[in-house]
Structure formats: C-alpha cells, structure tokens
Write a protein that binds this DNA or RNA. Structure first.
Length: 884
DNA sequence: AGAATCACG
DNA sequence: ACGTACGTGATTCTA
C-alpha cells in the first residue's frame, strides 16, 4: 500500500511547451518592467492543474543544468541542430525558478545531466522505496520509457492544459511495445529532433516490427540471420554502432549522482507572501485572485456616479473635509499655455465634474484646493500646480501624485496618461486620452459632451481608488522616503522655477541671427563652388552623393540608409578636401540658427520676455530631469560661437546678476563613495585633480612626474568610460586609441582602483538577482535584459547596471539640494531659475551677492553626506555667458 | 514616423 | 564570436 505520491516535473520541457502554446499572444504577456511572462504564466497554469488533479505529497521540478552533458561527450552533435532558445523565453527561466520556490516546491539541476536523468533516477529510488506512487509531468514523449506499475507519465499536449497519461497498458496499446522497449525502437530509428542517427532506412514501422519480433536491439543482432530482406539486413549490419549508440543516448539514466533525497521533496504548499509579491510583479491578476488576495477586485473601477457641478450644487463640496481627488484637464501638454477645459473633484462615491471654468475659482473649490487640512490626490502635481497658479489658486497639501508614484515604482513603462497608468496598476476599464480625444492632427477635445465629463471624472476616480494600493507598493519598494522627502517636494520647487522663468533678450538673438544668416550665405556659396553644383547641404543624402560619389572621398562609416556624414567622419576627411571643413562650419552655424536663435525666439513670451521651460520629472530612466519647450539643458557652451547664445539669457531686473553653481566631478565622487574604493576616495579627500591622479596611476608615473595634457585627456576618457560601464571597444572607439591599448588602460585602472572593479562585478550580480538596480535614495531601474541571451541587449543592461546608480545618485543629490535651496532662499530676493543636471542657475540682486556666495555652495555641498566631500564651484556675471 | 545629426550633462 | 560607451531634446530630411 503506497502512502506517498511523488510528482516529478520536467521544468525545461514544460516551460518550452507553455511558451510555444502562447507564442501568438507573446506580446500580451508582459509585465510592468517589460519582461515577457507567457511561459511563467503557462507553467503556473500547468502546476495548478497537476497539483489539483494529483494532490501529490512530494514534488520536485528538475531543470537542465546546461548544454554539455554526458550525452554530448558521447556524441558531440547531440541536440546539435537545436535552434537557440529565444530571448523571450530564456529571460523567463529565472522567474520560473522563483515561481517554483514560492509555490513551496523544490527544484534541482545537476551538471552533466538532463532533467530526464534526474527524474529517472528519483523515480527509480521512489519505486525501490515501496511507499511511493510516482507521477511524471513532461512535454517530452521520451520520458514514457519510465512508465511502470508504480509510475505514470503525463505528457502535456501542445496548446492546451490537457494531458496524455501513459500507463504500461497505454504504452502497449499506443506503441505496441513495452515501456522498456521504447529505447530499442529509438535506437534503431534514431532521433531527428535530438540530432542522432539510427539505422539507415529504418523508421518507426520497421523498428517497431523488429522489436516486437525479437525483443531488443541486442536480440535483433543475435538473430540477424533470421531477418528477411537483404537490404534491411545490410543496413542493420552497417549501422550497428549507430544503433547501439542511439540506444544509449535515448536511455534515461537511472543512477545519476543526484544529491537530493526523497525525504527532501515534501510539498510545502504556497508561500503566500512571496507568491503574492511574485504575482504582483508579474501582473498575474487571475492567479492573485485565486490566492484570495483579491487586491485588484477592490481596485476595479465600476460605473462612476457623478453630478455635473453647477452654481446650484457648489455648496455640496463642503462635505469634503479630509481628502479629495482632483483632476484638471487641459487641451495641450504645455500647461503654461494650454487652455483649462474642465475639472473633476470628489472622493469615494461622491463626484462632481464640469467644463465651466468659472467654477474653478469659486470659493468652495478654492477653499478645498488651497486648504492645508484637506489632502489632495492628483495626477501630475507640478502640472496641476502650474495650471491652478495661472488662475490665482495655490494648490496646497498634495499627498498622492499618481504619476510620480507610478514613475518611482517603475520607470520603464511610465506614461503621462491617467488611463495608461491606471491600466498598469490593474484598472482595465478606463480609457486613455488618445481613445477619447484622438491623436495628432485629429485630436479634439469637446468639453461640452457627456463623454468628456465622464472621462475626466473617471480619471479622478482612478486616482482616488489607486491611491492606497500604490502607496503600499511604494512602501514595499522602500521608496516612501524617496517620494515624500524628494519627489513630491521637488515637483513644487520645479513648478515655481518654471513659473519664474528666465529672461531672454530677443534683440541679442536677432542680432546674432542676422550675422549667422550672412555667414551661412557666404559658406553656402563657397560649398557650391567647391562642389561644382548647388544642392541641399542639410540633406545627408545629397551631401553624401557629393562627397563620396562625385568627389570620391573615402567612405569611413555607413548608416542604415547610406553614407554617414557625421562630425567624427567629416573631421577625419577635412584634410582631404576644403569643402569638408566648410560643411562642418555650415552645419554648426545652421544648428545654432535653427535650434537656438529661431527656436528660442519662438518660445519667448512677449509679455514678460521670458522663457518658461517644462521639466519632465517622470521621463528619464535614471532620475534625472529633462527639459522641453524649450530645452534649457542643452544651451551651447563647448564652442565659443555657440556659447555666445548665453549672452541673451539675462536677469529679469536691472543690475541683477546671473549666478551659476555646479558640482565638480559629482559622478566620480559618487562613484568613489559607493564603490568604497580607498584610492579614489583618497584622491578626492586630498583635493587632487582626479584625472591627473588617474593618469599617474594607470600610466605608472612617479609622483613628481609631470602629467602631460595628452595623458590627462586619456585618463579623463577612461574615468568617463568607467562611469558609463566601460568596454575596451567602446573606449577605443571614443578616444581613437587601439582596442588593445584600451584594454590595457582598463586593466590598469581596475588594478589601481580595485574597489571600482569589485563594484562593477557586484552591481551586475545584484541586477541579475533582483532584476533592478538602485540609487542612494532607492530610486529603482528595472533591467529585464540582464538575462538576455542576446549579447547586445545583455551587455547594454550590464553597462546600465553600472551607470544608473552613479548617474541616478547624482540626480538624487542635486534634487535634495534644490529642495533645501528653495527653503534657504525664502528670506531673499534671489531666485533659482534653472537646473542643468549638476548645475544650478540663479538670478541675484547686487545686494545679496555676498550672502549667496556662501549660502548657495553651502546648501549644495551639504545636501547629502557621502564618504568624501562634495565640491561646488560658482561663477556669476551680467549674463549667463558671463557667469563663467 | 523614423533616421540622422548635433546641442548639453 | 558576438559588436557598444551613459542620460537627454530639437531640427531637418526622407520615406
């Protein structure tokens, strides 16, 4: 009498089956971080079914350990024609293992053996033990050879969860032989999919006939003279080696050196906490609800009952005393200039919505929005703040910003659209703006329609309902402080900076513009003469034709579509033909003209002569800001001609100064701090020139040797390379040294800065284990490609793993500094105007210059406490150009 | 709409 | 062997 039931699962083959069963909906199975989840999903569905059907007492999932096994040693071509496992599947394997663990199931793999052999060995042990009944779950018919009185083999059929159950009787009915004879049949016929041959011209039918007649391969050869058919006999004799080898290859090992004991395999059942987390991470709603942890059910948005807000029911708003959710709709992304077209306000099941914008400034509405007692839930606090500010309302006490929280939880798939974000967090039935308003030229908002009112009230309700759940997520990620102490605060700091704006003198730009125009006309004529014809210099295609087809200059680089004519190529070609230098000059000036002269002139507000950029707070993957409409983070500085553009950026009051303070080497200081590298930290503590010190170290100079500018330049490139997640190829490409030399530099670098080397290794391991990396403030970036089989994708993810904590921590630091700065500047007239990643720009009245000289650097360098000090450098002058 | 180019940190 | 530096935005050309 058996008391125990052992379930043995062939992990790889079930994962493959699951993956190919769902191949047509591959892209529908993706989680927040872009990971494909189809095989994980299918695998779990299969687990559910078999656990339910079989109710095992003990379970093990066996995995293949790697490509090489004793079979490949015996026959190197074994499985040699298998296509590479697609990335979309291989990236899922680590998660399938995690799933198995969270479901309370042991897994095992054994180098040199396939999962089959582990299963065969354990099944044999269990049969010998006597107390066990064994069930094997696989996608591979080969395992049916293990069928016995005590062991059934269940093979999953493609495309369904249905299983084909093999008992000894079923094997005989279906195959006409005993389970133990399956390997003899395979020996004679070989196996195409595993890529090993048997006997020539012997297929399924002949093999079966022979084995039925004689019993085994050995018996066939014993009785070789009794075989009818001259050709058959000849083939059998010729391929005897192959047949015997094929039988060995097909035979599952039943005595593999498996280290797990039967006692270790008790089925523990689901680890609810872990499994809930896992399902949430995967976005498995149906599995979550099966667990009874039905979080999404509460989040599901049903029909929203709402009233149209009018002067008549305005007083009903007084019912909201503690908390409201609010959505302000605008007809364009640029909230500095867009029209306000409607708003929705409410909480729980009380909702009000309107397109009558006069009601926004009515007392009951203003009282709520500017109340410090009533908490506000919004989507995009900065946008909402600026929008309300334009009608004279100050938004106070924002608790939940759904856009920000969603971004912090996962930067990858973040969106500015409530509907899209809501979908990411479990709401299925909310429309996106694009669905309601259309897109591109066809976009049209019709504020008077019921559809419009319904849409924005749904958005507000989604914010209201997701608020607790998303805060819980944030807490689980250990990101609550990041949100409350940094992100929500910086939103208002940025809002104020954007509203303040920076004054740009249009006359300065126009004067520069007319000079550029003349220069462009001159250079254009020269280029046409040199080319012998007129053409569009701005067209890479036409320019390529002139340079490479007509003038036959050497083709150094190609793009997808033709010849590359980028700066690095043209600089190399410049000595060959004078036209090239002229093209470079033309390019440079036309860039300045179109982007910075014409571009800026277009966005100067005529009333205050200022530009009001928008900082995108939820876009970058590292936590940096970006700046649009206009982008004030890429105003020229590197070339003197371009730098002149900065003369147009001036203080908004006469006699004031433009002030600029920047962190010196912030990324390398962060690197020194988080890697803990003693040598690099020493350099910063001693106030050394880090690039010179690096040069001394990697080039092995004595302490009194002079570091030539060239050596310093090379060392600087290596320092940068390290921050970007270096490779010899990349370094070589970017600095013009040979790859071999680059390799040598990096080797020396890691010898001199061993802490940095260890960090680069550790951080990649961390990313592989956790699927993400973090900054000092727990900002997270998911890196699903870290598991990719595709070298490019994986390498990119590895470099990102190294770079993101550096770049992102630097971003954290300046954000903290900005928040502190806003407070520190409260008693002053000095205003913070711009942020350019490691630099802050201010306008300062003359009489506060002495104060800010100390104050601004002090606030910046005390933002965080690192292992080494932060250094701040400041410059000021009557224009941005002069602040140098 | 996407590619190429070039502006910044 | 594989083939690349990290993070952005604006403009222009081209399909």
């Amino acid at each position: 009498m058996t008391t125990k039931k052992l379930l043995l699962i062939d992990g790889n083959s079930i994962a493959f089956k699951a993956f190919y069963a769902l191949i047509n909906s591959l892209e529908k199975f993706k989680n927040n971080s872009g990971l494909h989840t189809s095989a994980i999903y299918g695998f779990n569905r299969m687990l559910d079914k078999v656990l339910e059907d079989e109710k095992p007492t003990d379970v093990l999932v066996a995995f293949d350990a790697g490509k090489t096994t004793f079979r490949t040693k015996l026959f190197p071509e074994y499985k040699g024609n298998r296509a590479k496992t697609p990335t979309e599947l291989s990236e899922q394997f680590p998660f399938i293992r995690e799933l198995v663990k969270d479901r309370g199931i042991k897994s095992y793999e054994l180098p040199n053996y396939e999962a089959d052999d582990i299963i065969g060995t354990l099944a044999k042990k269990a049969e010998a033990h006597g107390d066990y009944q064994v069930v094997i779950l696989t996608g591979d018919r080969d395992l049916t050879q293990l069928t016995s009185d005590k062991t059934t083999v269940q093979v999953s059929k493609t495309g369904t969860t249905a299983l084909e159950k093999y008992t000894p009787q079923y094997v005989e009915e279906k195959l006409g032989v005993k389970p133990s004879q399956i390997v003899d049949i395979k020996g004679l016929m070989g196996d195409n999919s595993d890529h090993y041959p048997g006997v020539e011209k012997v297929g399924k039918i002949t093999a079966k006939k022979l084995i039925q007649q004689f019993g085994s391969i050995e018996d066939v050869y014993q009785n070789i003279d009794n075989i009818s058919g001259k050709k058959l006999k000849e083939h059998l004799l010729n391929d005897r080696d192959k047949a015997e080898r094929a039988k060995v290859l097909a035979t599952i090992k039943r005595d593999a050196p498996v280290e797990v004991a039967l006692d270790d395999l008790a089925y523990q059942g689901d680890d609810l906490d872990q499994l809930t987390n896992f399902y949430e991470q995967m976005g498995f709603k149906s599995f979550l609800s099966k667990l009874g942890v039905n979080k999404t059910a509460t989040a599901e948005l049903t029909s929203v009952k709402y009233q149209k807000l009018t002067t008549a029911n305005l007083t009903e708003l007084a019912q909201f005393k503690d908390e409201i959710s609010f959505y302000l709709e605008m007809d364009d992304d640029n909230y500095h200039t867009a029209n306000l077209v409607g708003f929705a306000i409410g909480h729980g099941d009380q909702w009000f919505v309107t397109n009558e914008m006069a009601l926004l400034t009515s007392k009951p509405v203003v009282d709520i929005l500017s109340s410090s007692k009533i908490q506000k839930n919004v989507f995009d606090a900065k946008r909402t703040y600026v929008g309300l500010h334009r009608v004279g309302i100050e938004l106070v006490n924002v608790d939940f910003d759904m856009l920000l929280v969603s971004y912090l939880l996962n930067t990858t798939n973040n969106s500015n659209d409530v509907g899209t974000v809501a979908k990411l967090h479990g709401f299925d039935n909310i429309k996106t703006d694009e669905e309601v308003y259309g897109k591109g030229a066809k976009k049209s908002i019709k504020p008077e329609t019921p559809e419009f009112l319904s849409h924005i009230v749904h958005k507000a309700k989604a914010i209201d309902q997701l608020h607790n759940e998303m805060f819980e997520e944030l807490d689980k990620h250990n990101q609550t402080k990041l949100y409350r102490d940094i992100e929500i605060k910086i939103a208002f700091v940025l809002a104020k900076m954007e509203i303040t704006g920076i004054k740009v003198n249009p006359q300065t730009l126009e004067q520069m513009g007319s000079k550029f125009k003349e220069r462009l006309a001159e250079i254009e004529q020269t280029i046409f003469q040199e080319a012998g014809e007129t053409f569009n210099i701005g067209s890479p295609k036409q320019l390529g034709h002139i340079l490479f087809e007509k003038m036959h200059l050497p083709i150094l680089k190609k793009t997808k579509t033709g010849y590359s004519t980028s700066v690095d190529v043209l600089e190399k070609l410049a000595p060959d033909a004078p036209i090239v230098q002229n093209v470079l000059n033309y390019r440079q000036i036309s860039k300045l003209q179109s982007t910075y002269i014409d571009g800026l002139l277009k966005v100067i507000h005529p009333d205050d002569s200022k530009v009001h950029t928008r900082y995108l707070q939820t876009l970058t993957q590292t936590g940096r800001l970006s700046s649009v409409d206009p982008n004030l983070q890429n105003i020229p500085i590197r070339s003197e001609e371009g730098r002149l553009i900065r003369q147009a950026f001036v203080p908004s009051h006469n006699g004031w100064q433009i002030w600029s303070s920047d962190y010196s080497q912030i990324e390398l200081r962060v690197l020194a701090s988080i890697t803990g590298d003693a040598n690099m930290q020493e350099a910063f503590r001693e106030g050394e020139d880090i690039h010179a010190t690096t040069a001394r170290r990697i080039f092995g100079l004595a302490s009194n040797d002079e570091v030539t500018p060239e050596l310093r330049r090379q060392a600087k490139a290596v320092n940068f390379g390290i921050v970007y997640g270096i490779s010899d190829y990349g370094l070589a490409n970017n600095t013009g040294i040979s790859r071999k030399q680059a390799h040598q530099f990096i080797k020396r670098y890691f010898e001199e800065y061993p802490g940095v080397k260890k960090y680069t290794e550790d951080i990649v391991d961390f990313a592989k284990d956790h699927g993400y990396v973090e900054t000092i403030a727990h900002r997270r970036r998911y890196l699903p490609d870290i598991h990719s089989r595709n070298f490019n994708l994986r390498s990119f993810a590895e470099r990102t793993a190294m770079n993101t904590p550096i770049q992102g921590s630097a971003a954290d630091i300046i954000k903290i500094a900005m928040i502190n700065m806003m407070t520190a500047l409260k008693p002053l007239k000095t205003r913070m105007l711009l942020q350019v990643h490691d630099e802050l720009i201010f306008e300062v009245p003359e009489d506060e210059l002495e104060t800010v000289k100390k104050l601004i650097p002090q606030v910046m360098d005390s933002a965080v406490k690192l292992a080494i000090p932060l250094k701040v450098e400041s410059h000021w002058g009557k224009t941005w150009y002069d602040a140098k």
